[in-house]
């Protein structure tokens, strides 16, 4: 055991220094994560009565991760300003946060054509779903729900309460279905956004 480590661990957890920048964050094998994730899904399958209950529980696990991730990233990047614009926070999730979580930015960020409060984020090959094959009897289930929970957690702690759901979409040119996340913002977010825009115009 080296001296630095001893010192690090004798401090109270909240006083311990964070790893400085993102490049230094340690990694573990995706396999380790995949075994844990599939084992937890198995645990939920045994306990949940329905697919929606299963997804709810998985989403909650992700939600708690998302809350902490936003805080962690904000401290690490020394963010001085809170993101107050819907598009800013969505771009942040689509870009840096996704990069941090899954090693690459998400593939697409889009606003729904016919609804102001709906946005889509797409990932062509979502890291966490890669080793999960969903049997036909569970067709409605999407393991990306964990990531949807993470997104809701980040949005929620940034002050943008929303509902996030994950959906598979088959694509003829791709071996794996695309994961689409549908983000539906709560009315309060839109009301505030409108108010801010009005104030900006004067």
């Amino acid at each position: 055991m080296n001296a630095r480590q001893t010192a690090k661990h004798s401090l109270n957890i909240v006083d311990r220094p964070l790893t400085k920048n993102r490049a230094e964050v340690p990694t573990v094998s995706l396999s380790a994560f995949a075994y844990l994730f599939s084992e937890y899904i198995q645990y939920l399958v045994d306990r949940a009565n329905s697919i929606s209950e299963l997804e709810d529980r998985l989403e909650r696990v992700g939600f708690e991760v998302g809350l902490r991730v936003l805080e962690l990233l904000s401290y690490r990047d020394k963010a001085l300003r809170r993101k107050t614009d819907v598009l800013d926070i969505l771009r942040f999730i689509h870009g840096p946060a996704w990069q941090y979580l899954f090693g690459k930015t998400a593939d697409d960020l889009q606003q729904a054509a016919n609804a102001d409060d709906e946005y889509y984020i797409r990932d062509y090959d979502l890291l966490i779903s890669r080793y999960i094959s969903v049997p036909r009897s569970y067709e409605a289930f999407n393991p990306g729900t964990l990531a949807a929970g993470m997104m809701r957690g980040m949005l929620d702690s940034a002050g943008f309460p929303a509902r996030v759901t994950a959906h598979y979409m088959a694509h003829k040119d791709r071996p794996r279905p695309i994961t689409t996340f549908m983000i539906k913002l709560e009315p309060s977010v839109l009301a505030r956004q409108a108010q801010m825009e009005a104030a900006r115009k004067g």
Binding site: L30, S31, F37, L72, Y100, G103
Partner: peptide, 12 residues
């Protein structure tokens, strides 16, 4: 092996 951020693993 292919890697994933350890903090995501920890938090999950």
């Amino acid at each position: 092996l292919e890697q994933i951020n350890a903090e995501v693993f920890t938090l999950t």
